[in-house]
Amino acid sequence: MPQLTDLLFYAFAGLTLLFGFLCVANPLSRNPVTSAMFLVLTIISMAGLFVLLHAFFLAAVQILVYAGAVMVLFLFVIMLLDLKEEERRKLNAIAVGLGSVAVLGLAGVLLRALIQAKPVIAAGTQPVEGSTKELGRILFQSYLLPFEILSILLLVAMVGVILLSKKELK
């Protein structure tokens, strides 16, 4: 008898995949705004997965930051650039063939690994509760160095964006 959490997991995982597919390859609409909206739904389904993992803070941040702030920026950019519906491009048969071979190969390898794998819980790993306190402790003790490197990465990204998008070249 599957538990409710299992059912919820499959529901959220399936929805994430479905919305993700509709975001990049929607057969009905080529409108960028529709794609952006499906991205919101993908992110919300992923937040559901985080909740099932007891990572409540991450789930909230996922919705607040990604579904909220980042998506508003996306929509601003789409509207400022006034993107029209994308035309359907002619697909290159060779590229499609090679691409599907690569995708099917990867999917095959992953599926085979999943089928062969036995569920193991590595010894010595404690289940982590996703409270803010716990997360903060992990972030600023065990993972302090990558955290600080990423802060420099954000600075670099900011400098880069300003340089590459500045209007006048003087």
């Binding site: 990558p146 490197i149 990423l150 990465l153 670099v156 880069g160 590459l164």
Partner: peptide, 24 residues
């Protein structure tokens, strides 16, 4: 692996900017 990813991302993102630097 975590530090590896952070270091590689710092290299990659910085190089994206350095590569497209002559944007004229």
């Amino acid at each position: 692996f975590t530090l590896m990813f952070a270091a590689l991302e710092l290299i990659t993102i910085t190089f994206v900017v350095l590569v497209s630097f002559q944007r004229d």
